[in-house]
Design a protein around this nucleic acid. Sequence first.
DNA 1: ATTATATATATGTATATACATCTAATGTTT
DNA 2: AAACATTAGATGTATATACATATATATAAT
Lengths: 149, 149
Amino acid sequence: MKLEEELKQEKFQSEHQKAMLNILFTSNWLEADSARILKPFDISSQQYNLLRILKGQGDQAISVNNIMSRMIDKMSNASRLVEKLRKKELIERVICEHDRRQVDVRITKKGLNVLQEADKDMGKFSNITSKITQLEATQLSGLLEKIRA
Amino acid sequence: MKLEEELKQEKFQSEHQKAMLNILFTSNWLEADSARILKPFDISSQQYNLLRILKGQGDQAISVNNIMSRMIDKMSNASRLVEKLRKKELIERVICEHDRRQVDVRITKKGLNVLQEADKDMGKFSNITSKITQLEATQLSGLLEKIRA
DNA sequence: ATTATATATATGTATATACATCTAATGTTT
DNA sequence: AAACATTAGATGTATATACATATATATAAT
């Protein structure tokens, strides 16, 4: 849907301005969609993101700092997020031997199960695969990376 | 900067997956940047967005609902946001005559001044104008709108 | 070794947000 | 007109987040 309709605005200052608002708007749109999908699993999209990162590490536990550097939103309270997932037993903590400040984190069996179920639903919805071609996806990433350059 | 570097991830499931993460990441990136720029003016980016909407209406006051439908993030607490800006005297409220449930809102002189100053700084930074061409901006909007279709 | 500095994570606190509920005014039905 | 339904906005409450600061451990400097 055209941004003009979404924001009830006839025209924008410039194509650049419109593109920027489009990024913010689309991000919120995707975020709202995934929050809705994840709700039945009782996890936020940040928590989902964190679980996916841990899944990617397999058996290897990684530190909170390491997690933070891989997250989409680089927020400051990663330890509280970890604590929430730990209470739900979706992840577990391992005291790191060579650096006792550090807390390494690993996804649990239960976490993997929840993630697997959540992934099924996530695949169905906010599925941009059906909306744009693979080439377009690559172009899109290219443009966004140019902006952040 | 390549998303692979930003998220310390060697590869992604698919170009579609990468594009989606790129949208979310870029949005957070822009958001963080504008929050930083707006901080000296003591307004959040949501408040900035609201002021811009009101400026676009000129002298005409518009309802809280109308504002909400024009905002980038369609959140539920528009009235609290309005109240915050009113306390700062950046906007003013007008009781609507033909529907007394409705509260119409208009930007004040002070609000226009703050906005003008803020706009100067906003123009300098997160300025995507220098990063991509006008044609590319149009392409980007087109791709994002396709995703939301 | 002692002191200073840096790092990893945790926590206190203020503010923001989501979601549900509430109130007042308007519109609709009978 | 009375009863019901809908709409505009406000508010209570629980949770989330940002930002500053604290704590413990590790590293570097003297």
